[in-house]
């Protein structure tokens, strides 16, 4: 029983990582109705920037806003430069460009920072939260930050005009233009935000798994699993989905002998396929009711 509880708690903690990544996936999906397969590499790139700033001796509280801000600008610029020209191209072109970005970022990171693993200190300090606590300081901080990001996003979309405009642009681009919204600017904004959230996810994850150019590949897969499970249209769903994926992964690793501790990626594959087949809109995804 103790083991079970411990696995749930630690699954919850890893789930925080996936939840954050899933949020970033949902952001992009809302903006462009695509899944950005290069998102993990972009988040890793952001994390490297943070690592570099730390290595140059900047304090953590300065590094975080700086890395997030740079990532926002980076995501925005990538959309403007790379995707704007092919806005109306077929899906395959988009997928190919995502893959191209994947290769570019991955190789650039290897070139600049090489492929050796780098430890990244936690912003929340080392050790357990309190004596005998199941959660470490870092895990607690990770979950708290994920929740904070979720609440901020919710408030942004619910209460600000830009948030409303972004939702409208995603829901119906043509009509959005007819009320004067600059749809393609909103798309770029979505990219920027997704990239900023990806940076948050990367900085939270790096202290747990060590930083290297391929850090995010499997985590992105779990992020996708979480986002699909929760519903690609729902930020709250993505977070819940991310936590569920974390817990399922941990329990499966402990109790299904085949899976073992190290080989958990097939679980993500299994989850994705099952959700897409059984309930493609996910747990909280919206089913649009349209009467004409």
């Amino acid at each position: 029983m103790d083991l079970f509880l411990q696995q749930i708690v630690s699954g919850f903690a890893t789930g925080g990582i996936y939840a954050c990544m899933a949020l970033s996936v949902v952001m992009i999906y809302q903006a462009i109705h695509h899944l950005n397969f290069a998102q993990g590499e972009m988040a890793t790139f952001s994390t490297f920037i943070a690592w570099q700033l730390l290595a140059w001796g900047l304090p953590y509280f300065a590094v975080i806003p700086l890395a997030i801000g740079l990532s926002f600008i980076g995501g925005f610029v990538v959309e403007r430069v790379v995707f704007k020209p092919i806005e109306n191209a077929p899906v395959l072109s988009h997928i190919v460009i995502f893959i191209a970005l994947f290769a570019i970022f991955n190789s650039a990171m290897g070139f600049i920072w090489d492929f050796s693993i780098k430890p990244v200190p936690s912003a929340f300090g080392e050790g357990p939260l309190y004596e005998g606590s199941l959660l470490s300081k870092h895990q607690t901080g990770m979950i708290a930050v994920t929740m904070l990001v979720l609440v901020l996003l919710w408030a942004f979309f619910r209460f600000t005009r830009v948030g409303l405009a972004m939702r409208a642009a995603a829901a119906n681009p043509q009509s959005a233009r007819l009320v004067g919204i600059r749809v393609s600017f909103m798309t770029a904004l979505g990219w920027g935000m997704a990239s900023a959230i990806g940076a948050v996810a990367g900085i939270l994850i790096a202290p747990v798994v060590f930083l290297e150019p391929n850090m995010m590949l499997s985590i992105l897969l779990y992020g996708f699993a979480g986002a699909v499970l929760g519903g690609l249209t729902s930020p709250l769903g993505a977070v819940i989905g991310g936590f569920i994926v974390g817990i399922v992964e941990n329990l499966a690793g402990t109790y299904i002998p085949v899976v073992g501790g190290e080989l958990k990626l097939p679980i993500a594959l299994f989850l994705i396929v099952v959700v897409l087949v059984v309930k493609p809109e996910g747990l909280l995804g919206r089913r649009v009711v349209q009467r004409v």
């Binding site: 409303l164 409208a168 119906n172 959005a176 009320v179 004067g180 919204i181 009711v289 349209q290």
Partner: peptide, 18 residues
Amino acid sequence: GTFGTLTTEENLHLGAMT
């Protein structure tokens, strides 16, 4: 061209977006 997933009032606010 209404925004089907948004509420009536949100649709109206979108009209005043500019």
